[in-house]
Structure formats: structure tokens, C-alpha cells
Simulated scan of single mutants.
Amino acid sequence: MTLGVPELLARYGRTYAEEAGIILRDEPSPLYRLLVLTVLCSVRISAGTATAAARELSAVGLRTPAAMLGARRRTLIEALGRAHYVRYDESTATALGRGAELLLDRWHGDLRRLREEAGGEAGRIGELLREFPRIGPVGSEIFRREVQAVWPSLRPYFDERALGEARALGLPGSPEGLAALVAPEEPARLAAALTRASLAHVGAAGA
């Protein structure tokens, strides 16, 4: 099967951050909202439900770790419920609270400090991200895939799922080869498109 990059981007090239209403910038609040989205995506739940939950949490003002840590637990549970993020609502509320506390205590609420501690290196950033409750290897890949849009030191970042889908579509199978197909700031969109295409194909195969 072959699929050109323009068609791939047009069909699937919306990042999870965009879907969640996050205008991603290299600033503490949008970076934290991306971290929250990553936590929400790190369970067996649809990306649509996770992004809807991220929007609900943002709508009630939980856009910083201080706001998250100070929020009433019922506020978190109700926001998650409005997004139908109900199976994991209690454990997610706990994970978000503990993660906010970690971010404030260790990096003063600013994920750019985490990046600095890691020297901007993708592998070390992934290790530090996995110190947050619930974020494992997949979650750390989601965050790095998305944040490369505003953290150029990570570009090009394509995880194994994206690379496997690229090969299946007849595209280059290396991060550098894929990055050469798009504008310098576009690897995040291409990585998201490949991920979504892969999930769409898995769903179709199981239908």
C-alpha cells in the first residue's frame, strides 16, 4: 500500500495536542497541559476520550500544576466524567495530583527545567517523564512525539509505531528520511499522522 505524504497529512495529520485544544508553545502552561494529556492517554482508552478529558480539565482552569494540586478531587472527577473518562477517573485524579506535586517540587512547575536537566536528549527526557505517575514507555513516546513541535532538539522524533507504519506505506523507515519529506517544523504532524494511520488500520483489521 502506498500513501503520499500530502494525503497522509490531510487525512490524519492532526496532533493530539491540537485535538485537545492546546496551542503548544515552549511555555510552562501549554507544556503542562500536554503532560496532562499524556497521562490521560496512558491507559487503554480512546484518544478521542483522552483529548476530550484534557479539554474538560482545561475548561475548569486546571492548566498549571499549582491549579491541579489545589483542585478539589470532586472537580477532577466531574470533569473527567463529562468527557466519559469514567473507568479510570479515580486513579487518574490521583496520578494527576501526584504528578503535579512532583513537577512543582523537582522542576518548579516548569517542564523546560526537565528538558534542561536531560540536556535536551530524547532518551534522557523519556526517562525523566517516566518518573511521573502512570507515564510509561508509551506515554513518554506520546509526549516526545508531540513536544518536538516546540522542542527542536528532539526533531526528528518518530517512535517504532510511526516508523513501522511509514514502512508499510512505502515511505522511508528512518526518522531522518521521514523528516526530509516535510518542512523543518512539521515532523510532529507527520509522526501524529503515521500514528493515527496505524491505529486506523488496526481498527479496520479488527472490524
Rank of each mutant, 00 (worst) to 15 (best):
L62H: 04
A59G: 15
R72H: 12
T49P: 13
L37S: 05
L35V: 07
P65H: 02
I22V: 13
V36C: 01
R33H: 05
R73V: 09
G61H: 11
P65L: 08
C41G: 09
G70L: 00
A50M: 11
R63D: 09
R44L: 06
D26S: 15
G21E: 00
R82S: 07
S29D: 10
S42I: 08
A83C: 00
R72F: 02
S58Y: 07
S58C: 10
V43A: 06
V60A: 07
G48Q: 06
G61P: 11
T49R: 15
T49V: 14
R74E: 15
L37Y: 07
I23Q: 06
E27Q: 14
G61M: 08
I23L: 12
G48V: 00
Y32G: 01
S42T: 06
V43L: 01
L40F: 03
E27S: 13
T38P: 02
V60I: 15
L31G: 12
V43D: 02
A17E: 06
Y32W: 08
L31C: 12
E56I: 14
T49I: 15
R33S: 07
E56K: 15
V60D: 05
V36M: 05
L40P: 04
A20F: 02
L40Q: 02
I45A: 12
P65D: 04
M68H: 08
A50G: 14
G21N: 03
L80Y: 01
L57C: 15
G48N: 04
L35R: 01
E56Q: 13
A66C: 08
E19H: 02
M68L: 03
Y16F: 15
P30K: 05
P65I: 09
A20I: 03
S58W: 13
V60W: 03
S58N: 09
S46A: 10
A17T: 07
E18T: 13
R25N: 05
A67I: 06
L62I: 11
A59K: 10
V39C: 08
T38V: 11
L76Q: 03
S58M: 15
P30Q: 00
T64Y: 02
E78C: 03
L69K: 04
L69D: 01
R55Y: 09
Y32P: 10
G48D: 03
A52E: 14
L57I: 15
A71V: 04
L35Q: 00
M68R: 05
A20C: 02
S42Q: 05
Y32D: 01
L34G: 07
D26N: 14
M68N: 10
A50C: 11
R63I: 08
C41V: 09
E18C: 08
G21L: 04
T64S: 09
R55G: 12
A50D: 10
A20T: 05
V39P: 02
D26R: 15
L80G: 05
L80Q: 07
E19W: 02
V36F: 11
L24V: 13
P30D: 00
T64C: 10
A47K: 07
R63H: 10
L57S: 13
R74Y: 06
